[in-house]
């Protein structure tokens, strides 16, 4: 299945990546190879094999509903590029 540049652009947009024309060219070729590989996998006979959502067999790992201390406000905001000591500041979304 040939991979269109437009598809790569769309995927880049979903991942919020800006690609230069050269990068787009290069990634289109590289991703085509990856997809080819998966197409080979598709040929494996999987009749009678149960689909799996998980690679480990453990199930039902729970915690009890008990409160544990949270980080201090200053710690929580410590790595933020911008904050006012109470809120994270991000480029405006609406308004």
């Amino acid at each position: 299945m040939p991979l269109e540049k437009a598809q790569v652009e769309h995927i880049a947009h979903l991942a919020r990546l800006k690609l230069s024309p050269d990068e787009l060219e290069k990634l289109t070729l590289e991703m085509a190879v990856i997809i080819d590989y998966f197409e080979q996998l598709q040929m494996v006979d999987t009749d009678g094999v149960e689909p799996r959502d998980q690679f480990i067999t453990a199930e039902n790992v729970f915690r009890d509903d008990t409160v544990r201390p949270s980080l201090k406000q200053g710690q929580a905001l410590g790595n933020a590029p911008e904050s006012d000591g109470k809120f994270f500041h991000v480029p405006k979304v609406i308004g």
């Binding site: 790992v61 729970f62 915690r63 509903d65 008990t66 544990r68 949270s70 980080l71 929580a76």
Partner: peptide, 30 residues
């Protein structure tokens, strides 16, 4: 294990899991 509470002072009920700090893993509340 962060407290689930409405109206607390901003960003005082967070931890590495709910802040998505690298390496933190979720465990389901029964």
């Amino acid at each position: 294990g962060c407290k689930s509470e409405y109206g607390a002072e901003a960003n005082t009920l967070t931890c590495p899991v709910c802040l998505a700090l690298p390496g933190a893993l979720p465990v389901l509340n029964k």
